[in-house]
Write a protein that binds this DNA or RNA. Sequence first.
DNA 1: AGATTATACTTGAAGTCTAAAATATTTTTA
DNA 2: TAAAAATATTTTAGACTTCAAGTATAATCT
Lengths: 157, 157
Amino acid sequence: MSVTQPVHPDNASKDRLRLWLRMLKASRMIETQLRENLRAEFQSTLPRFDVMAALSRYQDGLKMSQLSDVLRVSNGNVTGIVDRLADDGCVVRVPVPGDRRASLVRLTKRGHEEFAVQAKAHEDWINDILSEFSANQAVTVSGHLDALVTALEGKAP
Amino acid sequence: MSVTQPVHPDNASKDRLRLWLRMLKASRMIETQLRENLRAEFQSTLPRFDVMAALSRYQDGLKMSQLSDVLRVSNGNVTGIVDRLADDGCVVRVPVPGDRRASLVRLTKRGHEEFAVQAKAHEDWINDILSEFSANQAVTVSGHLDALVTALEGKAP
DNA sequence: AGATTATACTTGAAGTCTAAAATATTTTTA
DNA sequence: TAAAAATATTTTAGACTTCAAGTATAATCT
């Protein structure tokens, strides 16, 4: 009498690998598309948009290190992006009273207006790109990914 | 008489946006993790790994232009990555008989060995990172993403 | 054949990204 | 309080990236 046993005991590993490769491919394609749209319509870039989006969520402003934390890009990187946004008058660096090392980065009025327009366009682009997913599917997969992100954050906080 | 109508007629748009933001976040976290692992364990990088993975799938070797095609990175970019891999003795440029412009890039014996180890580690890392997903879930979500990728490829070929 | 066009690749400029070193400024410790 | 440790940010070095221009070679046209 034989015991029923899968030929590939750890097939799950391959399935997960495939999932990752698909996810990577999809993300890159979407990113490329968004990058193109941002450049064509607003002469802007994804990193700039990301920074503005973060600042838009935190009306009181964020310190450089908090920004790089939220955006998960390196510290030194944020410097350049914020520099350029400041040049364009979209953000300002506000000194933090009592700590001369730090400064808060905040959206200017112009930055807010600019971002409002871009955010709307961005949502429309995504809605179009992801039309493949129904609202229900979107919610379901979001849930999985959220759990994944939470798990990852728990591993190396 | 009032008609029953949802307050947010295009809620799906928000759901899809959330899906994208989660996907982006998850992808970036995973990429960062992989990058770190590759650097710490193999003193290598993601682009290098990608090139070796491609060459591993095409045992007969790939021309530079084919490589840049498969990897979807620019032509000039591949030159540098292959240069460095060649310096490390992981790949060689083999002249194509009958066409002195082109050369085939192939993994060396050392490159093959190196990649075998890295690929195994890579799969294990992913299996660990994505342990949140069951094999079934992985397959299901893969399916959605695949459909998405196909749809995207159909839009701008 | 000789001139044009196309292909394969490399080079160079300009910019982005990460990780790590350097700087400046608190905060903590002995 | 002086020294050490921690924090916030910038600077730097080097890999990666694209795009445009350049070089060499091959294929095509007249």
